[in-house]
Amino acid sequence: MTSREIHLTVNGEARTATVEPRLLLVHCIRENLGLTGTHVGCETSHCGACTIHVDDTPVKSCTMFAVQADGKSITTVEGLAGPGGLSPVQEGFWEEHGLQCGFCTPGMMMTATALMREVATPSEAEIREAISGNLCRCTGYVNIVKAIQYAHAKVHAPAPALAHQGGE
């Protein structure tokens, strides 16, 4: 099968990969780009372990060919942490024990990160709905919900009231 070259922005960095047209994006990310944080749990778009962002939209990367991502910008779990350390979502998962084996976690956090952009203070039902494309076999979801609430609370908390100004 003839391979072709694709150009991607991966976690903010320009990357090139030579891929067969049939190569799944998730395999490109894991094997060609060497980013193994994105996992494979089914290859049939059911488990969500492979969730990444393509141009800021969450996508199950097992349902897309690498060539379809040519020219696009993708973010994986490796791109979540900011310069200051963990992102609010990552921090929430750590604080609230939102992961056990950690296998679903990267995909789960990518979905949660997308939700952060969409809704400021989601209800528990909205969070559960939002992550319903991501299976977790370990946690029973309670602490994942809490982790996501933690992240939202942290980012969208009302700014602290300004302290006394002036010389009263």
Binding site: L35, T76, L80, Q90, F93, W94, L99, G102, F103, T105
Partner: peptide
């Protein structure tokens, strides 16, 4: 164990 899992640095069999 969480920092490695949270940052995509776990080492599972496929890795």
């Amino acid at each position: 164990e969480d920092p490695r899992f949270l940052q995509g640095k776990g080492n599972y069999i496929e890795d």
